[in-house]
């Protein structure tokens, strides 16, 4: 047998194909069954979009979706601003006092079980006697997702040659303008990716939202969860398909934007 390290063995190909099939098949099946005309989720009754119509007539579900979207957009935006600032401070602030505490606080939520994050925030809100709902969930999601934004932006910032900023200063820009003219355009894709990650994480979250929300303001995952506990319903398949489709569109858009911006960087000079 000839040994060439870059040659794919049959074993390599098999494990790749099986692995990807394992990752995608369940979602594909879910999507297909969302178009099933039969009420019995497992009996194929022909193609239909009736479950989508059902969803769009389900007041409670729509409210939950609207709540999730609002929480997602606001918390992702807040998290992006805070996370980017944190990333700048951590990479460009050198060794300031409290830096270790700050990075500790920013990394801990990444690995901490959501039940603990949720519980601790709830206890805070109760102690502050804050009415729980949209605002508290948004705060909770901002806290969690800004840590992810920090990691994404920080890794991009760390990859940027410091001499680019120095060159900008050498060419007459004060530090702030140098940052705006050179660093910001270069980390822009990471900031956008951070926002999207924050948004999808918020859209996704069940546990923290369950702790921090109040009666009457359920997010979409909370609604779905309570439905799923009662069993499989074709309407849920439809909702899940919509979410998967929505996220797919966001991902495609994002990759298009980043391709476009790298293709026509020449005239978009933010001088």
């Amino acid at each position: 047998m000839s040994v060439h390290p870059l040659r794919l063995s049959r074993f390599n190909i098999t494990s790749l194909v099986l692995g990807l099939a394992f990752l995608y098949l369940p979602i594909v099946i879910l999507v297909i069954y969302s178009f099933n005309a039969s009420r019995l989720v497992t009996v194929w009754g022909g193609w239909s979009t009736r479950w989508y119509t059902e969803f769009f007539n389900d007041r409670a579900m729509l409210d939950a979706a609207w709540m999730s979207l609002r929480v997602g957009v606001v918390s992702a935006t807040l998290a992006t601003v805070l996370g980017t600032l944190a990333a700048i401070a951590l990479t460009r602030g050198a060794g300031f006092r409290g830096r270790t505490l700050m990075s500790g606080m920013l990394y801990a939520p990444l690995v901490m079980p959501e039940v603990i994050t949720g519980l601790s925030l709830l206890l805070l809100f109760v102690a502050l006697d804050a009415g729980r709902g949209l605002v508290t969930v948004t705060i909770a999601h901002t806290t969690l997702t800004m840590c992810f934004v920090t990691v994404v932006v920080q890794s991009r910032l760390a990859g940027i040659d410091r001499s680019l900023e120095e060159a900008a200063m050498d060419l007459g820009r004060d530090p702030l303008r140098a940052f705006m003219a050179v660093t910001l355009p270069l980390i822009w894709p990471a900031i956008a990716a951070g926002w999207m990650l924050a948004f999808t994480l918020s859209l996704d979250d069940l546990v923290i939202a369950s702790f921090t929300t109040g009666p009457g303001s359920a997010t979409l995952p909370i609604r779905i969860y309570s439905e799923v506990r009662l069993g499989v319903k074709p309407e849920i398949n439809a909702i899940c398909t919509l979410i998967v489709g929505f996220i797919a569109v966001v991902i495609v858009l994002a990759s298009l934007v980043s391709k476009l911006s790298s293709a026509r960087g020449e005239s978009a000079a933010p001088l």
Partner: peptide
């Protein structure tokens, strides 16, 4: 640096990749 009548050519050139 930005107020000095001195300019520098950097070792790795430090060309702005987005411009």
């Amino acid at each position: 640096p930005h107020q000095r009548p001195v300019n520098m050519m950097f070792q790795n050139y430090a060309l702005f990749p987005h411009l």
